[in-house]
Simulated scan of single mutants.
Amino acid sequence: MFEEQMESSCGCPLAAAVTFHLGRQAGVAYRGGFELGLTAIEFRVFQTLVLARGRTVGAEEIVASVRGDVRVGCEAAARQWIRGVRRKVGSPDPVRTIFCGGYAWNPAFAVSVCDRPAAL
């Protein structure tokens, strides 16, 4: 399912099935060529999970990536932001919930990350 390779407009290899494309400088993420419409906070959460490459990311790390520091109630804020990301990325959900640990990007979902925005 993920063997066939395509190339995005910026030259990054993309898997043919479920592909996410992350333009770091543009603050925009795509799924299969369609913009996800993430808010700035949701994009930061999405980016944090993707760049962790399957590693579990705790609520404190998610909040720190968005706000720059950790505050009281960070678990509730992280849950809310993850819910927003999940709602916008659609099904199947690439974000795994790790019991008593946090969240992780499912490595079965291909992601290309580029420094320049893609013109998909």
Rank of each mutant, 00 (worst) to 15 (best):
E61Q: 09
L36C: 09
T56S: 15
Y30Q: 10
H21D: 14
R24E: 08
L14R: 12
L14E: 12
G84I: 00
A59G: 14
G33H: 07
R24V: 08
A52L: 00
I41F: 09
A17E: 08
W81R: 03
S9E: 07
A15N: 10
G32S: 07
A17H: 11
C12V: 04
E61H: 02
A59P: 15
T19Y: 15
Q5P: 08
W81S: 03
G32M: 06
L38V: 02
G11L: 00
A76P: 05
R53I: 08
G68S: 08
R24F: 01
P13Y: 00
V63T: 04
A40M: 11
V70D: 07
H21T: 06
S9N: 15
R55G: 03
I82Y: 11
A78C: 06
Q5I: 14
G73C: 07
V57S: 02
A76D: 05
T39Y: 10
G73H: 10
G73W: 10
E42R: 07
L49S: 13
F43S: 04
V28H: 03
A77P: 04
R55H: 09
G54D: 09
R71F: 09
Q80M: 03
G54P: 12
T56H: 05
A76F: 09
V72Q: 05
A77Y: 08
T56Y: 11
A77D: 13
